[in-house]
Simulated scan of single mutants.
Amino acid sequence: MKSTAFTNSVTAIASALVASITIGTTAVQAQNAQHIQSLLTHHTCQRCELSGLAAPGANLRESFLDVADLRKSALSGATLAYSTIYYADFRGADLSNSDLRNTFLINSDLIQANLSGANARNSRWKYADLTEANLQNANLIDIELVYAKLNRANLTKVSLRNASLYGADLTGANLKGADLYRADLTDANLTNVDLTQTNLCRATMPDGKISMQGCTEF
């Protein structure tokens, strides 16, 4: 009885969510209720079409998202910690203040996504496209952003302590007040980046040299 009641409850939630999701002026097709139910019940989203999903604060811990369409989704405050994400589309999505700790993300699109205040500590984001994304005040300590695209991204007051930015493209990014203590910027592109107010203490710079900018012990 409890199992049936739970299934019916999830189905009702999924149906309600579908009713509230739109892409422009067109409602999402009814079959996407199955995609929502799969995400809510099993934390699995394979080739699902959930553009415009409104699920702020949702508990999606340990999810598996494979080729998921979550463009312009509203996931502020959601929990996605320990999730595995392949080729997902989060363009324009709101992931502000979300829990993204220990996530493994590869080849995913986060162009113009709002990640302000998000906690992605100890995550592995390989080949992520964060062009023009808002990462202000985000916790990116120990994150791996190898070959990530961060062109014109807002990284003000972000914590990138011990982060790996090997080969990352930060052209035009805003790093005002950012903390890159011991970060690895080997082969990174810092064209048009103002680093005068950035803590680069013991960071490895693109040319392989160790920076002492911001160190207070000397």
Score class of each variant (00 low, 15 high):
residue 81 A to Y: 01
residue 9 S to G: 06
residue 199 N to Q: 08
residue 168 A to I: 01
residue 155 L to N: 00
residue 91 R to L: 13
residue 11 T to I: 13
residue 120 A to P: 04
residue 199 N to G: 05
residue 192 N to V: 02
residue 111 I to W: 09
residue 81 A to F: 01
residue 19 A to I: 08
residue 200 L to N: 03
residue 46 Q to T: 15
residue 45 C to E: 05
residue 172 G to W: 01
residue 28 V to M: 04
residue 82 Y to V: 04
residue 32 N to S: 12
residue 86 Y to P: 06
residue 41 T to R: 14
residue 12 A to S: 12
residue 207 D to M: 05
residue 95 L to H: 06
residue 73 S to K: 09
residue 198 T to D: 00
residue 162 N to K: 15
residue 204 T to L: 07
residue 22 T to I: 08
residue 2 K to T: 09
residue 197 Q to I: 03
residue 208 G to N: 07
residue 146 V to L: 14
residue 17 L to C: 02
residue 46 Q to G: 05
residue 57 G to N: 08
residue 177 G to S: 02
residue 31 Q to L: 13
residue 186 T to L: 15
residue 78 A to K: 04
residue 119 N to S: 06
residue 144 E to F: 08
residue 199 N to D: 13
residue 173 A to K: 00
residue 205 M to G: 06
residue 160 L to K: 02
residue 154 N to I: 07
residue 79 T to S: 15
residue 192 N to H: 10
residue 187 D to T: 10
residue 101 R to V: 02
residue 217 E to H: 10
residue 81 A to H: 02
residue 203 A to Q: 02
residue 46 Q to P: 03
residue 168 A to T: 02
residue 206 P to W: 01
residue 180 L to P: 03
residue 65 L to A: 07
residue 95 L to T: 04
residue 123 S to K: 00
residue 80 L to Y: 00
residue 28 V to R: 06
residue 210 I to G: 04
residue 166 Y to G: 00
residue 168 A to P: 01
residue 176 K to N: 13
residue 189 N to C: 07
residue 64 F to H: 15
residue 22 T to Q: 14
residue 200 L to W: 03
residue 209 K to H: 12
residue 64 F to Q: 11
residue 28 V to E: 01
residue 106 I to R: 12
residue 59 N to K: 10
residue 161 R to G: 11
residue 58 A to I: 13
residue 188 A to Q: 03
residue 74 A to L: 13
residue 165 L to Y: 02
residue 164 S to N: 13
residue 67 V to R: 15
residue 68 A to F: 05
residue 38 S to T: 13
residue 12 A to H: 10
residue 15 S to I: 06
residue 214 G to M: 07
residue 80 L to R: 00
residue 57 G to C: 06
residue 216 T to Y: 07
residue 87 Y to R: 15
residue 67 V to M: 10
residue 59 N to S: 12
residue 46 Q to L: 11
residue 89 D to H: 08
residue 218 F to N: 12
residue 177 G to D: 00
residue 216 T to M: 09
residue 72 K to W: 11
residue 145 L to M: 10
residue 54 A to Q: 14
residue 47 R to S: 12
